[in-house]
């Protein structure tokens, strides 16, 4: 009220509205404080990303050389000398086997979801996929053990082997590829597909000549994200393909187990040996290099796809 009285006294129109200046000041200060807290939360959240890289690098840097990624582990305890070639080769095995299962299955059902099917049935399949993404990886591991690895009872009796581990990882990867393929097809402008169909193309012809080309970037992103997801998995491999310090002799049965970078880290960090802890940190740097390369490659591909779309 004081300000209105002030207007009556002075006749200054700038003082007409009853503005409580201290109230505004307080609001602005609260806003600043909220800004500060939000920024602090972000810094705290971003801190582990940098600190994980930094601490792994600081401890593991003296092992990071060509020798480390090009030799098999030797010495006592095993791994004290030599590198992690077994794990890199093993990861290659696992990713290839998992992709052989997940890529056709994921792309096929992603295309089905976006091209055919009734609304209701599709929403159920989508629900199943999202549920499978949420299933903890240790549960997948137990399933993989009983389906692929066990030598008693039902199942494929692959033993602890690359095939068993790879297929279990493929099960984890499939729903990811499916959902992202479907989204990639959805992102294509409807006019592309409708144009092809209006010209008399069947859906197969439209897929072959339009959809696959237009959604190529998105499908690649889907596959890369799937690989990114399985490359760091450890829990499923505990029960399906434990670890191998050498190269595998096959992909099933005894001698079929492969090394894996995540598994190697998990085993080394359990050992009561300082040198293996250092090597585990060096392996963390290698694993993070793979993960971040895939992540950034994936982003580049999807960014380029968007750019190419904008050009036309």
């Amino acid at each position: 009220m004081a300000e209105t009285d002030n207007y009556k006294k002075t006749g200054d129109p700038n003082n007409y509205f009853p503005v409580n200046k201290s109230y505004i000041k307080r609001k602005k200060i609260y806003n600043r404080i909220a800004y500060g807290f939000a920024a602090l939360a972000f810094i705290l959240g971003a801190f582990p990303v940098f600190h994980i890289i930094y601490s792994a690098f600081i401890i593991g840097y003296k092992y990071l050389n060509w020798h480390f990624i090009s030799t098999l582990p030797t010495g006592f305890p095993i791994g004290a000398k030599g590198g992690i070639l077994n794990a890199i080769v093993g990861d290659l095995y696992l990713v290839v086997i998992a992709s052989c299962l997940a890529v056709p299955l994921g792309i096929g059902s992603g295309l089905y979801l976006s091209l055919f099917g009734k609304q209701r049935a599709n929403s159920i399949i989508r629900l199943l996929n999202e549920l499978m993404i949420g299933i903890p990886s240790v549960v997948w591991g137990i399933m993989g053990f009983y389906i692929f690895s066990t030598n008693a009872g039902l199942g494929f009796h692959f033993g602890f082997s690359a095939l068993a581990g790879g297929l279990t990882l493929g099960f984890i990867m499939t729903p990811i590829v499916t959902l992202l393929t479907e989204q990639a097809v959805h992102r294509i402008p409807a006019s592309y597909i409708e144009g092809a169909l209006a010209l008399g193309a069947t859906k197969w012809q439209a897929t072959k000549s339009v959809i696959v080309k237009a959604a190529m970037g998105g499908i690649f992103t889907a596959i890369l994200l799937g690989v990114l997801n399985i490359i760091g998995q450890t829990a499923p491999l505990l029960f399906t393909n434990y670890y191998n310090t050498g190269t595998p002799t096959g992909i099933t049965g005894p001698g079929g187990a492969v090394g894996d970078i995540a598994m190697l880290i998990f085993i080394y960090i359990h050992e009561p040996s300082r040198i293996l802890h250092y090597k585990a940190e060096a392996a963390v740097v290698v694993l993070l290099f793979f993960v971040f390369t895939l992540d950034i490659g994936m982003r580049l591909i999807s960014w380029l796809t968007v750019k190419i779309f904008e050009m036309f």
């Binding site: 990303v49 994980i52 998995q233 880290i265 963390v284 993960v291």
Partner: peptide
């Protein structure tokens, strides 16, 4: 992207950290 990179870090790496 930084926050999403956090999501991509494997669980074993978090464990070692």
């Amino acid at each position: 992207i930084i926050i999403e990179l956090l999501a991509g870090i494997p669980s074993v790496v978090f464990g070692v950290w």
